[in-house]
Design a protein around this nucleic acid. Sequence first.
DNA 1: CTACCATGTTGACAGTGACTACATTAGTTT
DNA 2: AAACTAATGTAGTCACTGTCAACATGGTAG
Lengths: 215, 215
Amino acid sequence: MIEQPYHHGKLREALLERAMETIEEAGVDGLSLRQLARDVNVSHGAPAKHFRDKQALIDAMALAGFESMNRLILDAAQSDSDLRSRFVRVGKAYVGFAVAHPALLTVMYSTKHHPDSSTELRSTGEQGIHIAQGMITEAQNAGALAAGDPETLAMVCFVSLHGAALLAAGKHLEGTTVDAVVAATTDTLWAGMAAGVPAAQLEQAGQLGEAAGHS
Amino acid sequence: MIEQPYHHGKLREALLERAMETIEEAGVDGLSLRQLARDVNVSHGAPAKHFRDKQALIDAMALAGFESMNRLILDAAQSDSDLRSRFVRVGKAYVGFAVAHPALLTVMYSTKHHPDSSTELRSTGEQGIHIAQGMITEAQNAGALAAGDPETLAMVCFVSLHGAALLAAGKHLEGTTVDAVVAATTDTLWAGMAAGVPAAQLEQAGQLGEAAGHS
DNA sequence: CTACCATGTTGACAGTGACTACATTAGTTT
DNA sequence: AAACTAATGTAGTCACTGTCAACATGGTAG
């Protein structure tokens, strides 16, 4: 047995790293602060010195997840291809990340967050939409897409890809490959934005009634 | 104090009902079998007679959720309007349900399920896609939509609306109203399906590389 | 009437997150 | 160099949880 020094030195990083592994193996529910401490050969109270809460640890994981995901998306958006290909590439980057780190993605979009890190988390999480919005604006200026509010369209694209990402991460997409679904989704969205939506349809759609009951 | 009879009579239903309320108030993590038992004035071991596990209770909630959601979607799909309006209506029904019962929706699409109820859960959960697929086929036959594999297109629509539903449920859609996002999403999807996707684009999209790294 | 069985109760157990008091170390000030 | 201080890690405790086993109750079928 190697003698452990009293101070770990890089406990925070070690905890984060091990926690990432754990949630992918056993889900967020399978994450235990005490087991985590055991895994890193540290007493059960040690993690509290770096993460006041269990939720604080989870928040830290979510933030790290957004940061590494944003890097992937930004790379895809800045690749040197035509706009449409880059659009598809961004979609695949997003969904690819989701498939690679399903539990982390769930954590990232979990509702419960501490008010402190909440603001930083939120701004980091919204970065993806801004990238999409930039691409759409660029495509509209180039004449590849019809006119339309870029912010709303970006939201539509983000929302759709997010659904694909979560369903793919949850393995709810059996029957077809994930790639096929993403390709079909981005193609359909692009075709829809290229064709444009008649204003009459938009108004009409807004007037439909809501339906939300509970048995 | 009213004397409680030894046997509750409708414990299972009472537990399910109270559990539904609890998860919407405190999230799934805030659900405790013992607290649930206290809420219904029953001993802490009683719930085990109706749900062997905590997970079994959660599965039962998920199933009930799918059933009541399917009713709403089916109603929307069978309303007497033109195809496009019905399509939008289905989307609003889905997202409306999500906004009304956010925690329940999360539970419904949670990955962890018991192998027993898993099959029933899965088939009930897939019903929504089949409804969408039927509408798309009908619209294609009527000439309102371009040709294309209905199964894939239904998946695309479901995926997109699912994303909108989850983000709306998680209150991640600030800046715009939920209705606006749903309307824009269904409009864009419909326009894309009406325009159709050139086969050349589909092939091209399939050849793009995957991107999924981890820092 | 009796025997059975679904339903409910009680007690126990290990595991958890959070809190407190204490120990050890590193860095800074004097 | 010595002493003070803050950061980091340890040990013990508390209320709470999910699950299990043993027992109590009461409706129902034979």
